[in-house]
């Protein structure tokens, strides 16, 4: 046998450790889930049942809306990237579309969501949007419109990058259709990791935008939009009076350390919501970062 691999056990242990480090994104995902589970278990024993149900519902709504927003963003950006590629030679049409997209891009995302929520409020007031489920889908749609450009830019960049390599013209002169080259060979085969990475980042953005906007409208900064019209989310829950008191209690405990234990029993609603937001955003950020490192993006 080769001398280099004589100590099989040491090699195996080293490989396992290396494997674990390289797959840290999955560890972060597990950690995130475990964190949620621990918080839920604690709340199950120490938080009153109506408040727990409210947190559960807010957390699920936030997650669902963010997931749907990411799904919609992918749904818009993939065909948009392919269409833009094919109309690039038709300058007037192409430039008009790019001009429109640049206008969308120029609106700050948070303002874009606020404008979208105003439209939703009008629809709700005119009873065109009634059920909770429909409202959640509509919220996701609004968020997806303001974040999808990030993915679109990324997809277009991938297409442009491969167009510069020999592989693109080599397939073209072989008679392979341009649509197959772009969609299958470039986007599907060569850009999946990039797309997943972008989607994870967009999921984080969607959670952040949602929490920010729901908090803003809940504290009454907008006269057009009311939080009462929308299903509960982590942002709107954080803006509730009970939660605000709980958050203030954290400040109080800084000067009265003996108060700290009470944070985990009597101020659970606000603390839980704040923890869920911060810990989720941190976990998503870390999953995204480590995934990019692992895939060498």
């Amino acid at each position: 046998m080769y001398g280099i691999f004589t100590n099989r056990t040491a090699m195996k242990t080293f490989e396992t450790a290396l494997n674990l480090i390289q797959k840290q994104d999955r560890l972060w995902l597990l950690g995130w889930m475990a964190g949620m589970a621990i918080v839920w278990t604690w709340d199950y024993f120490f938080l009153n049942a109506p408040a727990l149900r409210l947190i559960e519902s807010a957390f699920l709504n936030t997650g669902l809306v963010s997931l749907l927003a990411v799904f919609f963003a992918l749904l818009w950006s993939w065909p948009a990237a392919v269409t833009l590629h094919f109309i690039e030679s038709k300058r007037p049409v192409y430039m008009s579309v790019i001009f429109f997209l640049n206008i969308v891009r120029s609106v700050p995302q948070i303002l874009g969501v606020l404008i979208g929520y105003t439209v939703l409020t009008v629809l709700i007031e005119r009873e065109l949007l009634e059920s909770s489920d429909a409202k959640l889908w509509a919220m996701a749609l609004v968020i997806s419109f303001v974040v999808f450009l990030e993915l679109l830019d990324s997809l277009r960049e991938r297409i442009r990058w491969f167009q510069r390599s020999d592989f693109y013209p080599a397939m073209l002169v072989s008679g392979v259709s341009e649509s197959r080259i772009i969609q299958y060979d470039i986007l599907w085969k060569n850009s999946r990791s990039h797309i997943i990475n972008k989607l994870i980042a967009m999921f984080g953005t969607a959670v952040f935008l949602q929490c920010s906007i729901d908090f803003i409208i809940s504290v009454g900064l907008s006269t057009e939009v009311s939080s009462q019209n929308f299903p509960a989310t982590l942002g709107s829950l954080l803006a509730k009076m009970d939660s605000k008191k709980d958050i203030l209690a954290i400040g109080n405990s800084l000067f009265n350390p003996e108060y700290i234990p009470r944070l985990f029993t009597t101020h659970l609603q606000g603390i839980t919501v704040a923890f869920l937001i911060v810990f989720s955003l941190l976990s998503i950020y870390m999953i995204n970062r480590v995934f990019a490192l692992r895939k060498r993006l």
């Binding site: 080599a170 008679g175 085969k189």
Partner: peptide
């Protein structure tokens, strides 16, 4: 024309294949 009348084999297979 591509793939029917004419085709081309590129110099570097590494770059010409996906």
């Amino acid at each position: 024309i591509w793939g029917r009348t004419l085709t081309m084999v590129f110099q570097h297979a590494d770059e010409a294949l996906n």
